[in-house]
Amino acid sequence: MLHTIKMTVNGELVKAEVFSQMRLLDFLREELDLIGAKEGCGKGECGACTVLVDGEPVNSCLMLAVEADGKEVLTVEGLGEGDRLDAIQQSIVDNSALQCGYCTPGIVMSAKGLLLRNTNPTRDEVVEAISGNLCRCTGYARVIDAIMQVSASSDSQDEGSER
């Protein structure tokens, strides 16, 4: 069955015709060529496909494109401005918190989702936010550090703007 759907993807309005069975992940990757979200398992276990839907991280392999009709989708390609990386991305780069990088877009989006909702998370909250993102390379510690540092630095920015 074909559906006409409309959604915002990385700030741009997208209109498309999709079959019922098309997953959001396939829609992003195959139709929009947004290949940042990866498929690592197709079953919600690895988190490589994580994107934000209405600001919340979800496994795009477990959601239909038609279910995202009318929603706002943010993928890793939508972060940062021009050449400037988002603070999370920059922190991951600075902390060497990636290796093969396959899990990275998913982790970045999980972190983004966390920091949108909570600018000052505890370490446990960071762990909670990314424990649905499997990474076989890094051992996670640097990833956690990198996300903690973003929240710490956005803190100081806030203080700065108050002064």
């Binding site: 919340e56 991280p57 477990l62």
Partner: peptide, 9 residues
């Protein structure tokens, strides 16, 4: 239950 992403759905 599951992960944060899973619990969102």
């Amino acid at each position: 239950v599951g992960s944060l992403q899973v619990r969102n759905r």
